[in-house]
Amino acid sequence: MNTNLRNIAIENSDTIVQMWLEKIDSLKGEEFRFSTSDELFENTNREFVNVIFTSIKQQGSLIEVITFSEKLITLGWPLSYITDGLQLFRRVTIDYILSNSDQVDTNFFSAVLTSVDKWVEPIIHQLINEYTGSWEHILSIQRIALQELSAPLIPVTDGITIMPLIGTIDTERAKQIMENLLDGVIKHNSEVVLIDITGVPVVDTMVAHHIIQAAEAVRLIGSNCILVGIRPEIAQTIVNLGIDLTNLPTKSSLKKGFITALEMTNRKVINLKPMEDGIEEMINSIQGE
């Protein structure tokens, strides 16, 4: 019975393909039409339906399916095209077989449904697997990319290091930032670390908690933390949320923080040529004229 149905489908593949191609055209969505030429769309449709038939002929071989899905993923076609296309194929094939048979009772009907399902299901599975596989791959690459730009540690002068934080901080990232920070403090032998949160969009209780913990840990290993880059709106949220930052020295800008850090390490910035001297010289030169 199954082989029989398979033969019917294969023998009449031309008609089925024709029916399918007519209907698939209506599936071509709006956003899709812009990025794809009609020619490419038609060719791919033809290839798609051929892949389905090859799989049926070879009794469920999926080699062609894998190659085809890889091609679709590279082209960036949506998964919905594939699932819709296969559903359509299922419907068209069932319609065709039923309308061309004389004997249509419940048994025959369910036999047709079962065998067509058997042809289509493995292909759907394979394609969805390929797609999710590619998504997961992209996701993991992006995660690594994010980790890489996570939290650089910049030693600016002896004993002073700056860590600019950029982007949203979640627990996972916070832990990593803390590890980077502590290892960096040891590596650069920093007496003072400036944590710059200018690039952190939101500071909520959780982010503040992580920053406080990082500062505490820095103190335990024998260094000091200054939190810099506190924007007005951040100061407001910190106070409104009732977050206690009293144990953590804070400064509004990196510049001010850096000056404090210099003081803490017994240094200061001096102008090599004092400004007043310059003005005096200028006045003298005018008087000389």
Binding site: L182, D183, E216, A217, V218, L220, I221, G222
Partner: peptide, 11 residues
């Protein structure tokens, strides 16, 4: 000389 890993577990 408190190690980073030790500092983090203490926290």
């Amino acid at each position: 000389g408190i190690q980073p890993a030790v500092a983090m577990t203490l926290i």
